[in-house]
C-alpha cells in the first residue's frame, strides 16, 4: 500500500462526512433518514476500488465511533452502532468493498448500465442483506417485519444508484484511479 492510497482513504472518509450536510429527509413514521451518505458508499467503491473503499469506510466509522458527529443529522458516538440500524453502518464496509470489487472487474466495460447494476447489487441487495437480519435480531422482530420497514427506502436508493452510476462513469473518464483486476499495476 502506497502513501497515495492512504491519502485517498483519508480523503474519502472526509467526503463521507461532507455528504452528511445534505439535509436528510426523515420519514417521521420510520425514523431511518434518507441521506446522501449511502451515495458516498457507492461512490467510494466505484471511484477507489475494493480495498481502498473498504478502508475508507472503516476509517470513517472509527471517526464516528470516537464521537465526531459525522453521520447525517449530526449523529455520532458508539450509540449509533448499538441502535436497531447499526447493521447498515457495518454493512457499508462490505458494500463498499463489493462495489469496488465489481467495478474493478467490469472496469473496461463500465457504462451507465453496468455501473447502475453494480451500485444496486452492492448498495441495495448486499447492504439490505446485512442490515435487515441485524435489525430483526437486535429488535427481536420477525424477519418479515424488518423487511417491511426497509422497503420504503428502496425507491430513494434506486435514485441514488442512478446518480452514483453517472458520477462513476464521469470520474472514470476524467480522473481514473482504479486499476482493473487482472491488469498489471502500472508504475506511477
Amino acid at each position: 500500500m502506497e502513501t497515495r492510497d492512504t491519502v485517498f482513504i483519508a480523503l474519502f472518509a472526509a467526503i463521507m462526512a461532507a455528504l452528511a450536510v445534505f439535509p436528510p429527509i426523515t420519514l417521521p413514521l420510520l425514523g431511518v433518514p434518507i441521506t446522501a451518505q449511502s451515495l458516498g458508499v457507492m461512490l467510494a467503491g466505484g471511484v477507489l476500488g475494493a480495498r481502498r473503499a473498504a478502508l475508507a469506510l472503516v476509517l470513517f466509522l472509527v471517526l464516528v465511533a470516537i464521537g465526531l458527529p459525522l453521520l447525517a443529522g449530526g449523529r455520532g458516538g458508539f450509540a449509533v452502532f448499538l441502535g436497531p440500524t447499526g447493521g447498515y453502518l457495518v454493512g457499508w464496509i462490505v458494500a463498499a468493498y463489493a462495489i469496488g470489487l465489481m467495478t474493478e472487474i467490469f472496469w473496461t466495460r463500465l457504462t451507465h448500465v453496468t455501473a447502475f447494476a453494480i451500485s444496486a447489487v452492492g448498495g441495495i441487495v448486499l447492504l439490505y442483506g446485512i442490515g435487515i437480519p441485524w435489525s430483526a435480531v437486535v429488535a427481536k422482530v420477525p424477519l418479515w417485519t424488518a423487511i417491511g420497514w426497509s422497503t420504503p427506502f428502496i425507491p430513494g436508493d434506486l435514485v441514488k444508484c442512478a446518480i452514483a452510476a453517472v458520477v462513476m462513469v464521469a470520474v472514470k473518464r476524467s480522473y481514473p484511479i482504479i486499476t482493473p483486476r487482472g491488469a498489471a499495476s502500472a508504475p506511477r
Partner: peptide
C-alpha cells in the same frame, strides 16, 4: 500509516466541506 490516515482525515474534513 494508520496515524497518517487519521490525521489526514481530520485535516480533510474542513477542506472537503469548504470545497
Amino acid at each position: 500509516r494508520i496515524a497518517l490516515a487519521i490525521s489526514l482525515a481530520l485535516r480533510f474534513l474542513p477542506m472537503v466541506r469548504d470545497l
